[in-house]
Amino acid sequence: MKHLLSTSELSREDAIHLLDLSDQMAEVNTREVKKLPTLRGKTVVNLFYEDSTRTKTSFELAAKRLSADLINFSAKGSSVSKGESLKDTALTLAAGGADAFVIRHSASGAAHTLANSGWINVAVVNAGDGTHEHPTQGLLDAMTMRRRIHGLGATAQRDLSGVSVLIVGDILHSRVARSNIHLLKLLGAKVTLVGPSTLMPHTELFEVDVNLDFDDALAANPDVVMMLRIQTERMSGNFFPSEREYVRNWGLTAERFARLKPKTLIMHPGPMIRGLEICSEAADSPQSTIVEQVANGISVRMAVLYSLISGERSLDV
């Protein structure tokens, strides 16, 4: 694995390996000294063309805990606002000696282009590209499911065979959904997409089930309900008529939450809007993994950076 651009490019073996490594990193993160010397002397460049404090901070912490040097580049206030191309920015930053680029960009495929255009010879991690993918989010979600479903200490080498997952909301614009779909299927889970038809992409190549009726999908007692963020500007695009109508049909309301079996996991990639896509009862419930997802994100990003640039396959801790 030279880059992490998309979960669709992962082999099952790579995915399981990354998840096992993430669990080992999580163990490091519980120690008093949460730091490993493994990437000392390596440089990670955070190349963020979109505001994302959460993802950026997560990658920052991951790099620091592995003792890597970090360069933070954000489009705001940089040469980008003066019109510098992605190519020139990448060349400039790579010239300082970089081992990995972590890129967040509004253009789908930007990470692919950075990795494959021959501009630079550096490992590239896709931290979210347009409406395409967000592979570390997919990995952290899978990590979270594995740990909850199999139990801590019992995750090694395990996949998610037989686990049924609903992904609910704006699938069309969601890079989180795409990364989850590929990875969850790779790991043997059964994925069903739920949402308004206007926010449902063509799904033929995803080979997943689609159910536009949330209540009908919930009646099948899923193991995991993953709620996606709804951007309210979608209303002005006429994707749905009103917040009220959305909540009524596709919100995880208290009433719907009450119908779930007690062990059903509630997930959300954040930032969430309480009262729109998810109610507080669900978000704050013991089944909710929302806080764990954030913590697991750091472990997954440590595992990814380690795999791509340490030159080692396994972690010696």
Partner: peptide, 11 residues
């Protein structure tokens, strides 16, 4: 606009 554009996340 196709199944492929959906996977690639391109409008």
């Amino acid at each position: 606009d196709s199944e492929l554009s959906a996977v690639l996340g391109l409008k």
